[in-house]
C-alpha cells in the first residue's frame, strides 16, 4: 500500500489542481488575515468557506480522480498487488494531497501573520482538524460512489447530490423536524442529529470553540456542556472517525468484489 500511496502522491504532486487548491487557501487565508487584520475574525470567515468548500472540492476531486485513475487501477489490479492496498493507497494519496494543500495553504499565512501570539492557536487547530476530517470523509464517500457507479455522469451526479444533501438538504430537514417537535425538549435530538452529518458536527465543534457560542443561549450552553468536555471531544472525534472509517471499509469490501 505504501508503494501505491507513494505513486499516487507523486502523481498528484504533478497535478496543477493540487497547486491551485493550495494557492486558493493561501490567497483566501492571506487576504482575510492581512486585510481583515484579526485572527479570530479570519478564522470565523474561513470556517464558513471551509465547511462548504472542503466537502465540495473533496467530493469533486475524489470522484474525478477516481474515474481518471481507473486505468491506473486496472493496470495495478493485474499486478501482484493486494486489491485493498490499491484503493486505500489511492484514497490516502488523494486525501493526503488535499489535506496537505489545505494545511499549508492555511498554515503559511497564519504563521506569517503571527498565529503563535494571537491566542487563537487552539481555534486554528480545530479548524485544521475538522477541515482534514472533512477532506478524508468526502473523498472516501466520493471514491465509494465512483466504485459503485461505472457510469461517470451518474457517479458525478450522485457525488454532488451527496454533497448537496449534507451541506444543505440535511439542515433543511433538521430545521423542519425541530419546528415540528417544538413542544418537546429537543436539545438532545438536535445533539443527536448533528452527529449524523459531518458538516454540522464540524460546524458546531468549531463554533463552540469560538466566541460565537455566546449567541447560542440555552441551546448553546447544552451543546457546550456536551462538546466542551473530554467526553464530548472524544465523541466528536470518534464520530468523525467513523465517518471516515465506514466509507473506507466499504471501499475495501466493494473493491475486493469489483470486476474490471
Amino acid at each position: 500500500m505504501i508503494k501505491i500511496l507513494k505513486y499516487s502522491i507523486y502523481d498528484l504532486g504533478r497535478s496543477h489542481w493540487t497547486f491551485i487548491y493550495f494557492g486558493f487557501y493561501l490567497l483566501i487565508a492571506g487576504t482575510l488575515l492581512f486585510l481583515g487584520g484579526d485572527v479570530l475574525k479570519a478564522i470565523i470567515s474561513l470556517m464558513n468557506i471551509i465547511l462548504i468548500l472542503i466537502p465540495l472540492i473533496s467530493t469533486i476531486f475524489g470522484i474525478m480522480y477516481f474515474y481518471n485513475s481507473r486505468d491506473f487501477i486496472e493496470l495495478l489490479v493485474a499486478q501482484p498487488v493486494k486489491r485493498s492496498s490499491i484503493f486505500l493507497g489511492q484514497y490516502l494519496g488523494l486525501s493526503l494531497a488535499l489535506s496537505v494543500s489545505f494545511l499549508l495553504g492555511m498554515g503559511i499565512p497564519f504563521l506569517f501573520y503571527g498565529l503563535k501570539d494571537s491566542g487563537q492557536f487552539m481555534n486554528f487547530l480545530s479548524l485544521i482538524l475538522t477541515g482534514s476530517f472533512l477532506t478524508f470523509i468526502f473523498t472516501a464517500v466520493a471514491f465509494l460512489i465512483g466504485l459503485f457507479n461505472e457510469n461517470k455522469i451518474k457517479g458525478f451526479g450522485l457525488a454532488i447530490l451527496f454533497w448537496l444533501f449534507m451541506a444543505v438538504i440535511y439542515d433543511g430537514l433538521f430545521l423542519l423536524s425541530l419546528l415540528m417537535l417544538e413542544a418537546y425538549p429537543i436539545e438532545k435530538l438536535a445533539l443527536g442529529m448533528t452527529v449524523f452529518n459531518p458538516i454540522d458536527l464540524s460546524r458546531i465543534f468549531i463554533m463552540l470553540k469560538l466566541d460565537i457560542s455566546a449567541l447560542m443561549g440555552y441551546t448553546g450552553a447544552i451543546f457546550q456542556d456536551f462538546f466542551g468536555t473530554a467526553t464530548g471531544l472524544t465523541i466528536t472525534i470518534l464520530a468523525l472517525g467513523l465517518w471516515v472509517f465506514i466509507p473506507v471499509y466499504g471501499l475495501k469490501l466493494k473493491g475486493n468484489a469489483k470486476d474490471f
Binding site: Y7, S8, Y10, D11, L12, R14, S15, N68, S69, D71, F72, E74, L75, A78
Partner: peptide, 12 residues
Amino acid sequence: YLPQIARFPENL
C-alpha cells in the same frame, strides 16, 4: 499481462 487498451496515470 498485456491489456487491450493501454492507458496509464497521466502525469507519470
